[in-house]
Every structure is written in structure tokens, then in C-alpha cells.
Design a protein around this nucleic acid. Sequence first.
DNA 1: GTGAAAGCGCTAACAT
DNA 2: ATGTTAGCGCTTTCAC
Lengths: 371, 371
Amino acid sequence: MATMQDVARLARVSVSTVSYVLTGARPISQATREKVLAAMAELDYQPHAMARGLASRRSRIVGLLLPIDERGLGATETAFVTGAAAAASAAGYHLVLSPVGVNDLDELRRLASQRMLDGALLMEVQLADPRVAVLQEVGVPLVLIGRTEDPSGLSYVDIDFDLTVRDAVDHLVGLGHRRIVYVNHSAAALADGYGPALRTRDAFAAAMAGHGLAPLMIPADDSAAGGRAAMAAALAQAPDLTAVLAMNESAVFGILGELAGRGRSVPGDVSVVSMVTSPQVAELATPALTAMTSPGSALGRIAVETLLRHLDADNGEIHQQLLPCALEVRGSSGPPRATGGDGITGAGPARPAPAPTEEAARRRAATRRRA
Amino acid sequence: MATMQDVARLARVSVSTVSYVLTGARPISQATREKVLAAMAELDYQPHAMARGLASRRSRIVGLLLPIDERGLGATETAFVTGAAAAASAAGYHLVLSPVGVNDLDELRRLASQRMLDGALLMEVQLADPRVAVLQEVGVPLVLIGRTEDPSGLSYVDIDFDLTVRDAVDHLVGLGHRRIVYVNHSAAALADGYGPALRTRDAFAAAMAGHGLAPLMIPADDSAAGGRAAMAAALAQAPDLTAVLAMNESAVFGILGELAGRGRSVPGDVSVVSMVTSPQVAELATPALTAMTSPGSALGRIAVETLLRHLDADNGEIHQQLLPCALEVRGSSGPPRATGGDGITGAGPARPAPAPTEEAARRRAATRRRA
DNA sequence: GTGAAAGCGCTAACAT
DNA sequence: ATGTTAGCGCTTTCAC
């Protein structure tokens, strides 16, 4: 394998000149540049990553820290990972996947102290995440995927749960629904202070209040069984509900199953909208799920770009960005069957359902836009 | 950050002694070892990854080469990736995720020539995969996930499609099914020579023949719509079918939808078994899918371990291993409703369905074993 | 605009 | 059993 020495020799210049041609750190005359480039091409020269890293103190590697304790990544997380990998690769960086338990702080410190990582992306950020302090101590620039309780001074990208919930609620209310139940993550997750569960809970209450409607919320375990149980509980509590908004991607299939088991059709009797869901998963259901499509890949890309910006320019420009999930209307939502007898709670102004044909056209257009 | 120099100074030994304590490449007396270890602890010393890599010519980084052109990773691939990451991490290695198009050979050559990768894992291997030759030219040890047409001389891990199909067919035949349709990947995939599609096709034919039954096979596009169409075609072709074996993870939900749409119950009228499927996905269906569970995580782990063995000992010990998917019986398979009027094709000896109670017990046991 | 040379922090001969 | 030292291949002063 050719080294920079070889190139310099062949081009009859010094190694430093070759280096400067490569890095562009100082002006090189057109003539020598071409000589050097020709020599590099001739020798099939590729800079040695470790040597360059050692000398420049920049590995051109960023770490993606994913929690180890989870039972695998969901479709959204996977999209995030591949999006990040693609963005890093496009920028000439490498992305290493480092499984580190959220509380395995020693392991994290070790990893960060090896000077192999120019920066790190933190997945599954908790409201109080001890990993942040560790990384900061060691001086590794980082970008959060998610938010800590107080993210001031930290760069992050996260889903805009407020806007996503509001859009979902608007969609259902726009169809004419007034009794809408929100199926959140588990009670345990809420008690643990799991950010998305908390944020969507508040956002749902606010969005419903904005329409003069009473919020109805049920937690569900992250499983089909959890969804079934939650749906049963919801129907017991509000037999007249006409729509379900499900945060819980795992539970939503149980919700559909329970509805089918009780002979309630979707979307005829009950509309179902799934939050933070990938198209692939939404398409699995019958009917395909109207869903708030998670911006997984874009999140990954933006997170990497943000991190690289921190590395290139050392200006401490904090970047905080929220991305909403986009509504994709599929087959699981529609106007409620009967506008009849409500008045049980939150009797407020709700828009009437649009005429069927008009509505159908609208839905088709919305779907097409995303395709 | 402390360097090896600092440690040596504090421990009053030479740098090489510190190095040897770290690498264990030569015997060190108990006394000095302890001095050194103490100094390292005191200084919070961590070896500099790049420096070590440059000097030792081993980066302790392995690459996971995933095709960029795909529309995201499925659950099986994701499990593979995380399994590989965990195994690498456990062995003190790092795993970089490199998205490289299957035909972007220049990019691959560049990547491999940077000397950043000690070895590579190749995902989504094609029957004739040009990436293999590139990696071999550059001298990067590799392990395939999947198999080329002629994998002699190459280490690989792959799913044992033959055994998996046989086990699935045995399960269905054991339940009493005789008219079984195999829903494969798309016709295009078959024409392209997509290995898994080809291998399972032949395995299905063989397994059915082994039971004296006629194989019935239908291709399906990788989508819910593809599954619906395939199911419709299958029913048109063989109205008396009682079981479906689906290779196509995306299509299987369409299959279920089509059956439900036609009022055929699962597993009452038709049993459905899904191939190469993750438990998470299997649980989404109602009823939950009896499935051949893909060994994604184990494949990832074994692939990494195999690769590391190649790196440590330079003996060219080729390692080729096939892992079957394990049958996990859930709710979508059961005995056929009626043994009545078959004799249309492949009239051969088929085991009768076991008595209901006995069978139920067997199924439960099988499930428990895997839990 | 270009070259010479001093490291970057470590490993691995070569010494003793 | 330990120390000395010459690199690993590159970046980056410092000189011209």
C-alpha cells in the first residue's frame, strides 16, 4: 500500500506538500497540485486513517450510543440509525455503533476516553440522563436524540410531540370525532418519567381542551396484550368512544385485535390513529393504519449534521430542533358513524364531518403528498 | 489526558513495560505489574486508540457493510446488527456501520484501503457479489452473512433455509395439512437469483415431496398488497388449500387480510406459518403468527466471533455455519377443519392430525421451550 | 509557494 | 524480567 512518502517521491515534492494538497490547509500552486494528484492516482493512494487520526487528533469517527438493555430497536430507531450512518458516510465520517447501558457509566467513560470518538450521538435520552455528564467531563461533543429535563446548553433533535399530537387530534376532530381516547405508554413508563409519554399526555390534554373536548387517557403495556387490555378498559369507561389515538406502537395491533374481536369495525365504528409509526408498520395492519409518520431517518441525518458542525467550527452554537411526525391518512380513520347522543362530557364545539366525497378526496391528496 | 509516558514515569518503569502489561505480549513480574496497574488507575489512564492502532496495525474496528439501496432494515436485519454490535463490544472491538451500495465498488475500495477496518461483515450477500472480490483484493478479512453461489474458501453464516422449511412443513403436515401453499418472494426476486427465494423454493418442493405431497407455490411482492394478491391467486388455484407457508414477511399481513376479507378464519379454515420472522412482528398479528423465528441476533454474534477468530489467529480456518429458524407455535396454525375430499393432487401418505387435546399440549410445550 | 523536521502515543524488535 | 529505541504514516510548526 502506497504511503504519502511514495506519493511525494513520485511527484518529486515533499511529504508536507502532499499533505497540504490533501487537506487544503495552505495554498498550493496549480502545477504541483496536479503533479501530486497524478501521483496519488497512479499509486492508488489512500490516506491511512489511523495515522491521520493520530497526527491530527481527529478520528473522523462519531459514536452512536445505543442502550443495550432494550429488547431490540423498533422501526423508528432503525431508521434513525441508518439515516445517521448514511449522513456520516456522506460527510466522510464513520459511524460506530456502541451499545452502552444507560447506567454503565464506567464503560462509557472508558469508551469516551479512548479518543476514538470525535463526538457522540445519544439515543433514548432520559429526562435525567447520567450519560450526558460523563461525556461532557471527558470533553466529547454530543447531540441528544430526545431531550433531558433541562436541555439548555445542549444540542438535540427530537420529535415535536406537541405538534404531532395536535395534528392527530385535529385530524380526528376534523372528521367529526368528539370522544377520543388516547392510549399512552405503560403506567410504569409514566411513573418513570419517560419523556415522550409525559409530553404526549400533556399535549393530548391541551389539544382536546383546545377543541372544548374532554381528554380520555389510558396507559397500555408495550405489547399486543397491553393494547387489548387498554382497549377493553377504554370501552368500559367510555362505550361511546369513536376514535383511538395510540402512542404505543406495540399496543396498537392489540387495539385493532380487540376491536375486531368485539365486532367493532375500523374505521366504521372506531377510527384508529397511530403515533410515531413507520410506514412499514402502518401498512401491516388491515386496514392500513392512519399514522403520524416518525421522521426517523431525517432525525438521524440532522443529528449527525449538527454534531459535525460542532466539530468543524468550534463555536458553541447550540442547535435544538423538533421535528413533527407527518400525518399519513390510510384506511383506519374516517368519519364517525353516528353523530347521535353524546353530551356526556366536554360538550363543546366540534366541527361536523365533511361530506363523504369531499373527505375522501382530501384523504387521498394527503396521502399522495407524502408518497 | 494521561499518556503511557505518564504512567511509566509514575510507576518508575519504561514505556515498553507499561505496554507489555497492557498487551500481555511478554511476561511481567507480579511486582512491576502491580506498580503499573496502580499508576494507570491513579492517572485514569486509557490507551489512545489511534496511536495503538497505528503502531500495531490493528484498529480493533470491524466494519458492517450494509447495502444502501434498500428501503430500511427489517426486524431480522436489525437484530443482526445489534447482535453484531454487542458481540464486537464484548470483545473490545468497535463496529462501524458502513452503508455501501452493492455496486458502489469504488467507494468500497476506498473504504477498505483506509486501513481503518481490521475486517468486515458483508450483509445481504448476493449469489454473485462483486464486493467479495474487492475486499479480498485489498486484503480485508471478511465473513459473509448469507452465501454466494460458490462460497468455497469463504467464511459465512446464514440461515439454514432447508431445515427451516422442512420444520415448517413438518409442523403443518403433522397437524394434518396436505394442501399447503408456499408464498415466496416476488417473481422478480426469483428471476434475479435472490438466494433465499431460490433455496426455500427448492426446499419446499423437496419437503413436500418427502411427504408425498404436491408443492404449490406462488410468488408475492414484498408488501401487504402483494400478499393479498398472492392469497387470492392461491385460492383460485387451489380452493381446497388449508395452510399457507409464507416466506415473505411483508406479504404475510396481506395474506391474513385477504383471508379475513373472504371470511376464512385463521387457523380454523386456513393455517398460516410465517418464515424468518421476528417475535415482535409475529406478535403484531391477530391471531399471533406461528413463525419460524429468525436467529438474527445469534447470526450477528457468530459472524463477529468468526471474524475475530480470523483476525487473532491467522490460520485460514474457514468457518461455514447454517442456523435454522426455530418453530414458535402461536395462534395462527392448527389442525385443518375437515379431512374431507382431497385427492386432487399428490395423493400420498400424510400423517393424520393428532387428537386435539394431545396436539394442544404439544404446541404449548413447543412454545414454552423457546420462551 | 515549498521543504525539513518534530512530534502524535503507542508497539515491537533489539538490547541487556 | 526490563529498558532503549526505531518506527507506524500522517499533520503541522518553523524555516526559507
